[in-house]
Amino acid sequence: MSRPRHALLLLAAGGSRRLGEPKQLLRLAGESLVRRAARLGLATAPAEAVVVCGAHADAVWRELADLPVRRIDCDTWAAGLGDSLATGLRALSGDIDGALVLLCDQPALDAAHLQALRDAWQGDPARAAASAYAGVLGVPALLPRAWFARLAAGGHDQGARDLLRARAADVQAIDAPALAQDLDTPEQARAVTGTSLGANQGEE
């Protein structure tokens, strides 16, 4: 029996209003956060990989253009994370069984955790596998295809989080407390990257 096929869905459309600069382009150990997230996601061997761009789209895409990922633009990115998620889900192929949803602003993300999510979901692909941190279920998460239609309709400001909470009985939780670390303010970003904002970022 063949294993279920998952897609990588990297949401990289946000405007980083509180931060004041695109967090997708912040660098950790010389690598932009968006490229790092894409690289770690690709290590799960997805059947396809989609990156949703919005604010700073061209600058973000320059970080990824040599990777085996497909760019999808979300014109309504400013409406919230839910619109980016909906745009990405609608772009996935019809033979995909699940979507590994990633963000760019989790510097503690690692390949081992993503592979644990993938393995848990592959063992029971009718259920989701989600990260557990700070008392919530959140992304990264591998969502089953049966959830796509509801999320693809949009209107979910928190992306998949509300649905993960509502359907907690159908979610396999994988602990990842370090993923609670935020990159929303200049002080938080400086603490993680060790540099002042703007020091390592290219021009759009």
Rank of each mutant, 00 (worst) to 15 (best):
S93D: 15
Q122F: 11
A130K: 08
R118G: 03
G20D: 01
L8Y: 00
D110R: 01
H56E: 14
L19T: 03
G30K: 10
A45L: 15
L85K: 02
Q24F: 05
S93T: 12
L40D: 10
Q122K: 07
Y133A: 05
G80R: 12
S32M: 00
A65F: 15
L114D: 14
K23Y: 14
H6P: 01
E31Y: 13
W121K: 00
S131I: 12
W121E: 02
L33I: 13
R17K: 10
C104V: 15
L137F: 14
A55P: 02
A49G: 00
K23G: 15
T44S: 03
L137H: 08
G138N: 14
P22M: 06
L109K: 01
L81P: 10
L109Y: 07
E63V: 08
L42H: 11
E31N: 03
R17A: 12
A37N: 00
H113R: 02
A132D: 06
A78P: 08
W77D: 11
P46N: 06
L10A: 05
W61A: 03
E48I: 02
L28E: 06
A55R: 07
V34D: 02
C53R: 09
L103S: 14
P68L: 13
G98T: 10
T87A: 05
T87E: 02
E31F: 10
